[in-house]
Design a protein around this nucleic acid. Structure first.
Lengths: 214, 214
DNA sequence: CATAAATTTGCGTGGCGCGCAACTTTTACT
DNA sequence: AGTAAAAGTTGCGCGCCACGCAAATTTATG
């Protein structure tokens, strides 16, 4: 009953992960092909050779399966953060880890923007997508706290920092989605992270805003 | 078929709004009393003297009804923002309008923290809650853009600013939720808004981040 | 008041999530 | 290796839900 996360993972665990991954991939693929509405749990289950009941042991809805990649990616961010050099400032480390991870995935495929949009804006999926991002935020806050040194003092700030970073990511992604992928996602994330780090003035500053900046 | 938002609203429209409000209030009340799981759409519908089918014409799920107050509150924020003096800086106006609106509601009742927590963290409700906040963010971004002066230049920054403000609000609220309401919500929002406006340094600065102070 | 427009409602359908109780596979221990 | 326990899978059944459709009812308009 050892839950040693380092040990080389027994057969049981490996199978479970493979099954989970297969289901989420199938869910994503099918939803992209046929449209979210047109995919039933049964379709996903049979696509990976498992019973619908088993699918529900892994995911409590097809929407959750579709969005689970979001959370999984954050595990990679967490690892990337652990590997940032100790000398680096907290913010530098967090943003670099985040950007690095997204860069590794590459700029999202422009051809898939319409499909992605219709999927993510679909009401049922949208809720799950946001839930996934909330989880991501929690994971990131934990990772930040781990690096900053746990302490009740820092906990709230870690959460705010995580929330701000995720705000930049989500805003950039949404921008990409609604612009038919015309503006590159990665660059936008970078820009927004920089603006957020500089604080509010940078938000009202560069653009032609109503009240003159002082 | 006039959709004049100024005209004194015919009987039709008033009834619809009353019905909607009644349903969302009933949904919230019943869910608080009996627990989310124990409330069926039918219960809410009959509580306001309407058919279940009609309920679904207004809300596509009971969770949506439960969370609809979040979006409605944002309409008040928008109005508050419109009434900020023109001389005020954008950020000042936005945060003041937000804080003012929340202050008008008063510090959330500490006795209800457990109920609130069990409701909002309930998976189905959680998704809707986040969807509601996403809507709030959109509404706020529009209001900001309206004040800043529309322009493609500003659109992205407006969205980021809205996202940051909402980050502060959500983080403060979540903090309140998980601390059994021990830390006051309103003050926390204020603190976080100030920190966010100052940018990253204030997040890493005050606390004993890298070098332990004690 | 008559007629058009909008809203409510009942009904039917397809689907879903999960508790439960077998059944099968993996693991742990001698 | 052999066996018992633990964990995972599956079929079944139940209650519930969202929504299309068309008929009935209510409100608006000239």
């Amino acid at each position: 009953m050892t839950t040693d996360p380092v040990a080389p993972l027994g057969l049981r665990e490996r199978k479970k992960r493979a099954a989970r991954r297969a289901m989420s991939e199938a869910a994503l693929k099918l939803a992209a092909e046929k449209g979210v509405e047109q995919v039933r749990v049964e379709d996903i289950a049979s696509a990976v050779g498992v019973s619908p009941r088993t699918f529900n042991n892994y995911f409590s809805s097809k929407e959750e399966a579709i969005c689970s990649f979001v959370v999984e990616r954050q595990e990679r961010v967490r690892e990337a953060l652990r590997e940032r050099p100790p000398g680096e400032s907290l913010w530098e480390a967090v943003t670099t880890a985040t950007l690095e991870t997204y860069r590794r995935e590459g700029e999202p495929n422009r051809d898939s923007v319409k499909i992605a949009r219709s999927m993510i804006l679909h009401p049922a999926v949208h809720g799950e997508f946001l839930k996934a991002h909330a989880t991501v935020e929690r994971v990131l806050a934990e990772a930040i706290l781990e690096r900053a040194g746990a302490g009740t003092e820092n906990a709230l700030n870690a959460r705010l920092m995580a929330a701000i970073v995720e705000s930049a990511v989500k805003t950039a992604f949404f921008n990409w989605l609604t612009n038919d992928g015309a503006e590159p996602f990665l660059e936008t994330v970078e820009v927004l992270l920089r603006e957020a780090s500089a604080g509010v003035p940078s938000l009202t500053g560069p653009g032609p805003v109503k009240s003159p900046k002082k």
